[in-house]
Simulated scan of single mutants.
Amino acid sequence: MPAMLIAGPEVEPLTLAEAKIYLRVDHDAEDALIGSLITAARATVEALTRRVLIDQSWRIVRDAWPASGLIAAPVNPLKTITGAHVLDAEGAEVGVPTDALLADTARLPGLIRVACGTVPAPGRPIAGIAIDVVAGHGADADHVPSPLIEAVRVVLAHFYEHRDEQGAGAAFPARLDALVAPFRVARL
Rank of each mutant, 00 (worst) to 15 (best):
T118K: 12
A40K: 15
I71G: 06
D63I: 01
T82Y: 00
D132R: 01
M1V: 15
W58S: 02
L14Y: 09
G169Y: 13
F172T: 07
G83Q: 08
M1R: 15
D140N: 14
E46H: 03
T49G: 11
D132T: 14
A40Y: 13
L176A: 11
A121L: 15
P13S: 09
G128R: 14
A32G: 06
R107F: 11
L111N: 01
D99K: 07
A43W: 05
L48F: 07
D104G: 00
A73W: 02
H137Y: 08
H158R: 03
D55E: 06
A92H: 08
D104F: 04
G95L: 09
P122E: 09
D55P: 02
A141K: 10
A130M: 06
A64D: 07
D177N: 13
A32C: 05
P13I: 00
I38K: 03
E12H: 02
G110N: 12
L102A: 07
A170G: 11
A130P: 06
R24Q: 12
L101Y: 13
R113F: 06
D99H: 15
A89S: 10
G8T: 00
A135N: 07
P2H: 12
E150A: 11
A115C: 01
D26V: 14
L156I: 11
A141I: 07
V119L: 12
E46W: 00
L37D: 14
A29L: 15
P13W: 03
V45C: 06
I6Y: 04
E90D: 08
P97W: 03
A72W: 12
P125K: 15
A84V: 05
A7Y: 07
L102D: 14
T39F: 13
R163T: 13
A141H: 04
P173R: 05
V133A: 06
Q166K: 12
R153E: 04
E161L: 10
D140L: 12
S68E: 01
A170T: 10
L37I: 12
N76D: 13
W58D: 05
C116D: 15
G110S: 01
A84K: 03
A127L: 09
V134F: 00
A186V: 07
V11D: 10
I34V: 15
L108E: 01
A7G: 04
R153A: 00
A168M: 11
D28M: 04
P120E: 15
P173E: 14
A32K: 10
